[in-house]
């Protein structure tokens, strides 16, 4: 890629993708993202193409087809764009019997766009990099950790509760719901009878919220919390004293 590219004509080649990346590429061509304003045009034959847009891992079935498509392209500039985790490195299929790995096993790749699937913005960012509009933002990091351990107080208890939250709440809301419950627990443990006041606090929370799902989760977490306390008690782990300490530390 000696000279700056202006208008890239692209041939879209699927070497065994699950269609996720292909759908994102369709998205990029819609008026909302509009890759054509960057000069990109999808063509029907590799003979007309400057770039080969590859999605999917390189399977044994498509090995020679991919090779032929590459050879059919005009000798210059012959750009290869790997879209999606699979095309970059094989992804989840990297050790499958029928998969060679990423497209870089066969062709020289000019730009990798990882993601499973990549967002349309991510693909636009990759194209913009090819055209020379933006610079890359990532680089390899090697971090040497210090020997000191950084932990939160009562980390084990919160992890146990997170495990329980996982059973009823989805990935996105989990932390928020758990933090709300955490606040309730710590509030209850500044009081005289923490278990009963936690029950009251949970009831209060349920009467305030208008979302029955949140109400269910809080009540569920309350029962699980009691079970976990019992479990800690059986293993002689004095978690309630620690909770009280932590609650007072937070309160003051």
């Amino acid at each position: 890629m000696g000279r700056k590219l202006k208008s890239i004509w692209v041939f879209h080649l699927n070497t065994g993708a699950c269609n996720g990346c292909d759908i994102e590429i369709l998205d990029v061509l819609t008026p909302y993202y509009d890759a054509e304003r960057l000069g990109v045009k999808l063509v029907g034959s590799p003979r007309h193409a400057d770039a080969l847009l590859v999605t999917g891992p390189l399977t044994r079935q498509t090995y020679y087809a991919a090779k032929k498509a590459y050879e059919a392209m005009p000798p210059s500039p012959r750009i290869v764009i790997a879209v999606g985790t699979c095309a970059c490195s094989g992804g989840i299929f990297y050790d499958s019997f029928s998969v060679h790995g990423g497209i870089d096993k066969l062709l020289p790749v000019h730009i990798y766009i990882p993601g499973c699937p990549p967002r349309p913005e991510e693909i636009l960012f990759g194209i913009a990099q090819l055209v020379g509009l933006v610079n890359k933002k990532v680089k390899q990091v090697v971090q040497r950790a210090s020997p000191e351990l950084k932990t939160e107080p009562l980390e084990r208890l919160w992890l146990d509760l997170r495990e329980e939250t996982r059973r009823v709440v989805g990935y996105f809301d989990r932390d928020e719901v758990l933090n709300t419950f955490k606040e309730l627990v710590l509030k209850a443990y500044t009081r005289y009878d923490p278990r009963r006041s936690l029950e009251k606090l949970v009831d209060e929370y349920c009467s305030q919220t208008d979302d029955p799902r949140l109400c269910f989760v809080m009540k569920y977490l309350y029962t699980r919390f009691l079970d976990i306390l019992e479990w800690y008690k059986k293993s002689h782990y004095n978690i309630e004293d620690m909770l009280r300490e932590e609650a007072w530390r937070r309160a003051t």
């Binding site: 490195s89 990798y112 990882p114 890359k136 680089k139 040497r144 950790a145």
Partner: peptide
């Protein structure tokens, strides 16, 4: 973070070393 496109695959690696 989503702007990960890079011409070099090594850029996408993070290594943490713990004694």
């Amino acid at each position: 973070e989503f702007e990960l496109a890079t011409p070099n695959k090594e850029d996408l690696i993070q290594i943490v070393e713990i004694p």
